[in-house]
């Protein structure tokens, strides 16, 4: 089956991905929401501070790769969400499809349960979008 899609189809899907990222950015304390491809390149990003997207993309893939290995080592199978708790906030990572990842950067005062709940509920939608997009 051909993966070739019309430009309108791709544009509407890309628009929906942007809406999802905008929605995630509206959560209290979320400062960046990004989609990173398997090579560590940022394909979509919404942010309210200056961030080095190359560094963000590369670190997302490195951290998630390490967490996935750790999960396998302890017999936990796949890593679904990785949460980094830092001095100034959190970074949450979740795999989408075909190596694409969703990364959220938050401030310390973000409500972790709120952000994680939204992330967990958003991932299945993003998976469907990417599955039809790729």
């Amino acid at each position: 089956m051909s993966n070739i899609q019309s430009i309108e189809f791709r544009r509407s899907h890309s628009g929906e991905i942007d809406s999802i990222l905008r929605n995630l950015m509206s959560l209290q304390g979320v400062t960046a929401a990004a989609i990173v491809d398997s090579d560590g390149l940022v394909t979509h990003i919404h942010r309210d501070f200056e961030v080095n997207t190359d560094a963000l993309g590369a670190s997302v893939q490195i951290v998630f790769g390490a967490a996935s290995k750790a999960a396998r080592h302890v017999g936990h199978n796949l890593a679904n969400i990785v949460i980094c708790e830092n001095t100034e906030g959190y970074v949450l990572l979740a795999p989408i499809e075909a190596g694409f990842m969703l990364a959220l950067v938050t401030e310390r005062e973000a409500l972790l349960g709120r952000v994680r709940f939204e992330l967990k509920e958003t991932i299945p939608v993003l998976k469907k979008l990417f599955a039809s997009f790729l």
Partner: peptide, 24 residues
């Protein structure tokens, strides 16, 4: 809204987001 099946991913995505936002 999460159990709805269909091919209209864009509409389902939007609806799911709205229902979730209403609840939260």
């Amino acid at each position: 809204s999460q159990t709805q099946k269909g091919n209209d991913i864009l509409n389902m995505s939007e609806q799911g987001r709205q229902k979730r936002a209403a609840f939260i």
